[in-house]
């Protein structure tokens, strides 16, 4: 356990990044979201998993 196995850790980082990118993409295309858009950009960039979940469940307006 001395050596950290990065081969197993980078997928986690990549998936989190993917989630944030999908969120940003949908945010850019959305006409309206709940709350100001810039706030959601910050939440998506720095909010990790929970930030992205919050955007998709609370932030997006389904129309």
């Amino acid at each position: 356990m001395d050596k950290v196995n990065w081969g197993l850790i980078w997928p986690l980082v990549a998936l989190q990044a993917l989630l944030a990118i999908i969120g940003l993409f949908s945010l850019a295309k959305a006409e309206q979201v709940r709350g100001p858009k810039w706030l959601w950009v910050l939440i998506l960039l720095f909010g990790n998993l929970l930030g992205s979940i919050a955007y998709f469940t609370i932030g997006r307006k389904e129309s």
């Binding site: 986690l12 998936l15 989190q16 993917l18 989630l19 999908i22 969120g23 949908s26 998993l49 992205s52 979940i53 998709f56 997006r60 389904e62």
Partner: peptide
């Protein structure tokens, strides 16, 4: 609505 994408990604994470 990206549901088909983001929910599986969250579950994998």
């Amino acid at each position: 609505s990206y549901r088909l994408v983001w929910i599986p990604v969250v579950f994998i994470i």
